[in-house]
Simulated scan of single mutants.
Amino acid sequence: MTSEFVHRLDGVPKGARAHSVSAVAATVEGRGALRISLTDEVSLHGVPGRDYIDAPTFLELPVAFADGTIEVDIRSGLHRLAPDYARGFAGVAYRISPRRDHFDCVYVRPLNGLRTNPPPPRDRRAVQHFSYPEWTFDRLREAYPDGRYEAGAEIGPDQWLHLRLDVQGERCRVTVDGVPVLEVTTHGRWGMGAVGLFVDIGTEAYFADLRVVSGSVLD
């Protein structure tokens, strides 16, 4: 049995809960969307590795998800409070536990996208998968120097992209603008959890046209 949740994201969905982020309806390039960024309190006074950087910083949606497909359009760039290491981090968290103490996440770094002609190794770091809390990006890079949990992509800042995740069990396949860019074996826990619109430090992101389909997708 499959189920489907579709929302234009031209307003905050009923029942959504913000965790360390602000989310407001906005219009960008004539398109209705949700503008999401970290709160000023977190951006200015948060502790890296605790309050942000691969942490529970997302708008949690009233959607139950275990296996299936998540699709959303994202347009992200730098926030006015962005530190020099910010890359426009924005993406999707999934299988969020009720206490938000574990989840999986895929996010993009558009300032590392190939459209910006970044130097190595940043050209291979436009898309990232991590599993909270143990397997953040820095631990994944140390444990897997082959870079299997991140990949390059033909993206850039302040441009719309279409992110699609196909998830089943421990597998997650990531597609950007119809191009498969990453397929990983996750370190997260299996089971049902919520879906969240994720941002990290220094990011101003817009999200539109979300579609979540629950059910088996990979064979």
Rank of each mutant, 00 (worst) to 15 (best):
R122Y: 15
E4W: 02
D54S: 13
A208Y: 04
D123P: 01
Y107L: 13
I96C: 05
L165E: 04
W135A: 09
G30R: 04
R148L: 00
Q168S: 06
D101P: 00
F130T: 11
S216N: 11
E142W: 10
I36D: 11
Y149E: 02
R99D: 15
V72Q: 07
V195N: 04
V47H: 12
A26C: 08
A33C: 14
H45D: 12
A33W: 06
R173T: 05
T57W: 06
A33I: 07
V174T: 14
G77N: 05
D158P: 00
L140G: 07
C105G: 03
T175K: 06
R8I: 09
L78C: 07
D209N: 15
R148Y: 01
V167D: 04
R115I: 02
G91D: 03
R124M: 11
D219I: 08
L61D: 08
Y107G: 05
P119A: 13
W160S: 05
V28D: 11
R189F: 07
Y144R: 06
D138F: 11
L34G: 09
T175D: 10
Y94T: 01
P118D: 04
V179N: 09
F198P: 03
D54T: 07
G169E: 08
D158I: 00
F198A: 13
V72F: 01
S76P: 09
S97R: 10
V47Q: 14
H162N: 14
R189C: 08
S97W: 02
D200P: 10
